[in-house]
Design a binder for these strands. Structure first.
Lengths: 224, 224
DNA sequence: GTCTATAAACTGATAGAC
DNA sequence: GTCTATCAGTTTATAGAC
């Protein structure tokens, strides 16, 4: 297929219309492969995931995977980058002007919602951490650390203003919030088994968020 | 070497002395292999772990691994069983007679101590959960569920006696406690990076336990 | 019991026809 | 761009000398 053939549709969105039919086709295939790759990586981890499994899930011959992503490593890095995009944009809630109780409540709800809506991405991230973060190591010590340090500053101001208990360490609080929310994605098998259900329902996630909110707000000395 | 040769030492402990020299030698080799296997499984997960890597870490030829454990799967199951032994014996603290604050404080300290002393075992367990618990699935829905259900009964009694906040769900509290403590083993790379340290020190683990205790006790409506 | 050698299957990646 | 065939390397597991 050449550029500007019959399938070329004038799009309303200019950013899209600037792409040729070929480029659009490539983007579609890449998305399809990335989705399949994320699923396989989440189930197996990087080392155990096979390009054959990714190809099969994408409904493509194995060689096509290597045509769009030269190596398995490049494909994994792209998956990880997409996963990070989802994860990092949650911490803006913690500003000095915000109400601590409201910020914490919204953050917990957002994180539990992420665990429910993006379990695959959550597990890819968990696998990466569990295996020593060979690809995300840099990000953790730079960008993520900076974000949490900034949040700690906000918590210190809140504490100085008497808005929150002074003995709460923001760093460790974040570790607990991350762990407690991600467990509903990463360890959903365990949670489901202990609750006695096959799969977690919307009610289960709501209750999870509600319970964690109760614990954390009261734990931070905030009236519920 | 035949049974009853010069290396046969009369042992004070009868249980040990009943074992032949051959059996003891076998037990030693099995332990050596199991330790190496746990390390490799914790770093790679079951699928990505190779018997060659286990052999290398144990300082043995690869064939010897298969002599003591016929298949990689049997070796993994034995490692998992040993891991479970470490993990399940922590919940006896929660009895109706116990003081809720004391029980929770001790449980958190014990769990954080486990995360520090047995990070390998913790990661093997985490890997198994993350990949859908193909080998521990049964255990989760039977033995573990029964334990947590029993704890929930204790919490209900405590709540009825006014000893603990009535709106705390014991099941979700346990999920949070497990996740928050295990994160110091499973995600120690992330924790260390955000704290700005290469490796977590004893002080870091102490602070982790202390902070989680503050949050949970106050969160459960208990005077600290 | 230990170890070298090797079988049989699978892995990431590529060549080359279409 | 797509796909079959295939390479070189690795994997689990075993055979068989010692």
């Amino acid at each position: 297929m050449r550029i500007g053939e019959a399938t070329e549709i004038p799009a309303a969105d200019s950013a899209v219309s600037q792409k040729s039919a070929r480029a659009r086709s490539r983007a579609v295939m890449e998305q399809r492969i990335l989705a399949a790759a994320a699923a396989v990586f989440s189930e197996a981890g990087f080392d155990a995931a096979t390009t054959a499994a990714i190809a099969e899930r994408a409904g493509l011959p194995k060689a096509n995977i290597h045509y769009y992503f030269r190596t398995k490593e490049l494909l994994y890095q792209k998956v990880l980058a997409d996963v990070l995009d989802i994860w990092i944009e949650q911490m803006d809630l913690f500003t000095t002007e915000a109400d601590p109780a409201v910020a914490l409540r919204l953050y917990i709800q957002a994180k539990v919602a992420l665990a429910r809506s993006y379990p695959i991405e959550s597990r890819v991230f968990a696998n990466e951490m569990l295996h020593g973060a060979p690809y995300l190591g840099r990000f953790l010590g730079s960008k993520l650390k900076a974000r949490v340090d900034a949040i700690a500053t906000v918590f210190a101001r809140w504490a100085a203003q008497g808005k929150i208990a002074a003995d709460v360490d923001a760093h460790h609080l974040m570790f607990t919030l991350w762990a407690a929310t991600q467990t509903y994605a990463d360890f959903s098998v365990q949670v489901g088994a202990v609750l006695g259900v096959d799969a977690l329902s919307e009610k289960d996630y709501e209750r999870a968020a509600e319970q964690l909110t109760i614990l954390v707000l009261r734990g931070c000395g905030l009236d519920n």
